[in-house]
């Protein structure tokens, strides 16, 4: 039962932070929000017994994806117009 509660909480955290990431105008902050969302979803994947997904998802969505977006923000502009 407790794992279902943790699952619900982590998915709701993911929902909140994905909403914040979409509506945020400061793109650097949005990348941070999206990384938090990724961590919450990684916990959800782990609780849904998909450890293979977790291993790829954490490395890509927190590390590689965030870094790629930060490099792109440095090359373009920080604020959304």
């Amino acid at each position: 039962m407790i794992h279902l509660v943790i699952l619900a909480i982590s998915v709701l955290i993911g929902l909140v932070f994905s909403y914040l990431a979409i509506t945020e105008r400061d793109l650097l902050k949005a990348v941070g929000f999206s990384a938090i969302q990724a961590v919450a979803y990684a916990i959800a994947f782990y609780l849904l017994m998909a450890p293979d997904i977790v291993l790829a998802y954490v490395a890509i969505s927190v590390g590689i994806y965030s870094a790629l977006l930060i490099f792109l923000i440095r090359k373009t502009g920080r604020y959304e117009v």
Partner: peptide, 14 residues
Amino acid sequence: TPGGGFQGGSALAV
């Protein structure tokens, strides 16, 4: 164990 080439490779790239 869970894991594999793609998962390990993407962790390696970090």
